[in-house]
């Protein structure tokens, strides 16, 4: 049962206050949000910070619900919240088809190159022209996460070694006031 202690240690070392691994649905999204909100309420977090964390969490969770590529032997994804002295960190990880990496990378790199005004313009240009996709997204999630957090989006792709899939990790930080 050593893995239990190891997991506990890993969570403490990385300041993780919540980890969810499994299938992602709207019901799970609501539960995770409610847990995180209770945690922030009980610790007396500033309302402006709470709102930003909530905002980034919703986009992150709904991104997984809508976009995580279904891979035959692994439908699951992981979502974590870290809480440090000076910031909250929202992390997600989910499988992605290798063929989708380039497009996603380009999108994220483009967002990270923009400043506050650039992100605002990008948001406005997308919202004017976008249609809600079959998956229910507006194509605005990452831009919104970058805007609300005020920080660059951290991302990484890990090859799963099966020649088809990778694991996409996304990390957004929200400064505590």
């Amino acid at each position: 049962m050593k893995y239990i202690f190891d997991l506990h240690k890993t969570m403490l070392e990385n300041d993780l206050i919540l980890v969810y691994e499994g299938e992602f649905t709207q019901e799970i999204t609501k539960s995770v949000l409610a847990m995180a909100e209770r945690n922030m309420d009980s610790s007396g977090e500033e309302s402006a910070v709470k709102r930003k964390v909530f905002n980034v969490m919703v986009e992150c969770l709904q991104n997984i619900v809508k976009h995580a590529d279904n891979i035959s032997d692994n439908h699951s994804a992981v979502f974590m919240i870290g809480k440090q002295e000076d910031k909250y960190v929202i992390i997600s990880g989910n499988p992605i088809l290798n063929e989708n990496i380039d497009g996603l990378k380009k999108k994220l790199e483009n967002i990270n190159e923009l400043d506050k005004d650039g992100l605002k313009e990008l948001y406005k240009s997308i919202i004017k022209s976008t249609e809600i996709s079959d998956k229910g997204g507006a194509g605005l999630g990452f831009v919104d996460m970058a805007r609300k957090s005020g920080n660059k989006l951290g991302f990484e792709f890990t090859d799963l070694g099966d020649g088809k899939n990778s694991f996409f990790c996304l990390r957004t930080s929200i400064d505590r006031l």
Partner: peptide
């Protein structure tokens, strides 16, 4: 109080 990005498109 809060709306997500998919709602923002519909609000527009």
């Amino acid at each position: 109080e809060y709306f997500n990005t998919a709602s923002s498109k519909l609000i527009l």
